[in-house]
Design a protein around this nucleic acid. Structure first.
Lengths: 311, 311
DNA sequence: TAAAATAATAGATTTAAACTATTACCTTTA
DNA sequence: TAAAGGTAATAGTTTAAATCTATTATTTTA
């Protein structure tokens, strides 16, 4: 059994396709096939069921793959150790972040982070929660920024801050006359909502005591970005709920459309999450510190009161 | 970096000698030397300081070695996983056990264990606590049976039972007239003791409130085995302290020389200990179960009251 | 200072990993 | 139902690298 064989094994598990896996490993498909056969022969078990398309692990194969991921991760930490010692914080950092956080959180810290750690190459992908979790498990991402808790044992959550929900209302909306709003006063049926799949959607519905998904809320139109929702409220009518960070830098006329919730404000827990293998630890710790120090004062100091849980 | 290279690395760390390490890896010394050089070159750091005899790790090398041990252990678990699935509990099990426990504990479970798990090849070594701990760290032992706590973060302790101390007195001894003895009544200066290095010695001294080591107790003669101490008390005079298991199967005339402590009896915590890498998990769990089920009734059900800590 | 011990180096040999080309075996589709 | 396309295995060759034996360079010990 060699380290290379395990890497081929993990690649096949990740891509579920021999040729693709081989390409990602920079070898040809027969090379990968043969090494996998040798590995299976040595272990005395079939790891993949090749009779199905796409290939998939056997039952025992799943355990082997899981342990192989642990072993290979521990292996990589040896190189990491030496690298951090020699070059300081450096290397590639692949971040996955949910779309309702990205446009407001990333600008806060990104330039200073790049200035402080010029040796780090950052990749940022806007993805929904489920995709981030999957990619973390396959080691296609190093770290995720999203809303927790996830209730996933293979993922480690590091809470960063607790973000309030706020109302965003057209001046014509009945609740617009109030200084503060409450969950009870909101009719979920008249809320502009994000597409299904965004965790912010389910958080909002849950906040309004509508655990189950709802059809014909307002219209069939459902947006993929908070900015679209804001634009609709601004130029048309109705209301929507937004996360606090998205209304930080509004011009005065638009700030007038924001209504905070009455205390205790509903909050969502925003966390940095990593796979429990804890690769690139130092770099990720640097990222966490950099995000936290760049948060608006109010957010950094807030304690969790009523946190909206997803699902 | 290959798995083989790491194994060479660990072997050199374990034996601190290239030729010996090479032999244990079943390769020649030049092979091992070259692979280690390649590894060091690839990592870009010197792992061993060869200018000293015997060779020793550099500061950074120590970290590399520690992480390499973790990685290689996780690697081995892949094979273990498959093996347990295929063959059930099997393979080699190297047990280290302290001399004050071995002759009384091993006979209790060993034959039934061998009968139940014929696929397991057992090796038992009688060693003092420190040696067992060192060998566990170097993976020269799989499991230790000794008295805890050890206060060592790399070792995991699984308490098995709480064993009482008892007095063993020559009929002529003044305390012999009493039914029970107490620590306060014992003069440590007139106790027959084991050699220095045995944890039972320090436990007994601690029990009698003599934390520091004492010279000229009784005589210069200090025994290496409890059986010798017993024989001295039986045929000569004086007293000694013994662990409970060592007086389980005595003939009537000798049982008469045993005096238990008054409640609360002083107890020592006997544990199964393993390295935190948790190799051979299933086999070791089987061992633990087998030991516990073969304990004398009284021992198995006893709760810890006053436990004598070592050092 | 000579002998012994230890690790590094040189060069040859063996082993095995990787490549190209092709085949076998599915599934999909025309 | 045959043809096309996709997928992994197999065959044979080349390339790379791990290991071996023999020897040298250095340090330690007697």
């Amino acid at each position: 059994m060699t380290l290379t064989q395990l890497e081929y094994l993990l690649a096949v598990d990740t891509y579920r396709h021999f040729a693709t896996a081989a390409e990602k490993c920079f070898v040809t498909q027969p090379t990968l096939s043969m090494q996998l056969q040798k590995l299976e022969e040595e272990l005395g078990v079939q790891v993949f069921d090749r009779s199905r398309v796409p290939v998939r692990p056997t039952e025992l194969g799943k355990d082997v793959i899981a342990q192989a991921r642990v072993a290979v991760a521990e292996f990589k930490k040896i190189e990491e150790l030496v690298k951090v010692q020699r070059d300081g914080i450096s290397g590639e950092l692949r971040i996955g972040i949910i779309p309702t956080l990205a446009p407001y959180l990333v600008p806060l810290f990104i330039t200073d982070f790049i200035k402080k750690y010029p040796q780090v190459r950052i990749t940022i992908q806007e993805l929904v929660t489920n995709t981030i979790v999957e990619k973390l498990k396959l080691e296609l991402l190093d770290v995720g920024l999203l809303v927790t808790p996830l209730h996933d044992k293979t993922i480690v959550e590091v809470p960063l801050f607790y973000e309030a929900f706020v109302g965003y209302l057209h001046p014509s909306h009945p609740l617009s006359s109030l200084k503060e709003i409450t969950a009870e006063a909101i009719d979920p049926a008249e809320l502009w909502l994000l597409n299904d799949g965004h965790c912010f959607r389910s958080q909002v519905l849950q906040l309004c005591n509508r655990a189950k998904d709802t059809r014909n809320v307002h219209l069939d139109y459902e947006s993929g970005s908070l900015e679209t929702l804001k634009r609709i409220v601004e130029t048309q009518s109705g209301m929507t709920l937004l996360p606090e960070l998205s209304v930080q830098e509004l011009p005065a006329d638009k700030t007038a459309m924001v209504r905070p919730f009455a205390e205790p404000q509903p909050l969502r827990e925003v966390s940095l999450v990593v796979h429990r293998s804890f690769l690139k630890r130092k770099t990720i710790e640097a990222l966490r510190d950099e995000i936290v120090t760049h948060l608006p004062q109010g957010l950094r100091e807030r304690h969790p009161v009523r946190v909206v849980k997803i699902k």
